[in-house]
């Protein structure tokens, strides 16, 4: 399985077969708490890196989910609206949010690897 890359907005990205699968990190879901609702982007939408394109709500708060890279939304996780708790139970597997066909895969290369992301999280604590 491809290596995960991480954004400073606490998203993870996995590039496989030219398509990037994206979700929120284990750290992010822990901070949010029990996820009760997700709002996902429309398939086909062109997004720029940094666009707020999804919403995740826990009992206590709402948070934006950003596109970590530019590209086109090619699929969203249809299981999430019915079972948002997947974000908590399997953040980097069944709890993925959307898939982007990257405009430029170099944007993914520029994201943090697991070690750099952990240092980033630690620096914010």
């Amino acid at each position: 399985m491809a290596e995960l890359k991480f954004s400073k907005d606490h998203e993870w990205v996995r590039l496989e077969g030219g398509v990037a699968t994206i979700g929120i990190t284990d750290h992010a879901q822990t901070a949010l708490g029990d996820v009760v609702f997700v709002d996902l982007p429309e398939v086909g939408r062109e997004v720029a890196a940094g666009d707020a394109i999804a919403v995740v709500e826990s009992v206590k708060a709402a948070s934006d989910v950003y596109a970590p890279i530019a590209g086109k939304i090619v699929e969203v996780n249809a299981a999430l609206p019915d079972d948002p708790s997947l974000v908590n139970s399997a953040p980097t597997e069944g709890g993925w949010f959307f898939k982007i066909e990257p405009a430029d895969t170099a944007e993914i290369d520029a994201l943090m690897d697991a070690g750099a992301y952990q240092s980033f999280v630690d620096s914010q604590a």
């Binding site: 708490g33 029990d34 009760v36 826990s58 009992v59 206590k60």
Partner: peptide, 10 residues
Amino acid sequence: PVQYPAGILA
């Protein structure tokens, strides 16, 4: 404490 490890829902 806003919550304990069990979480708000539980």
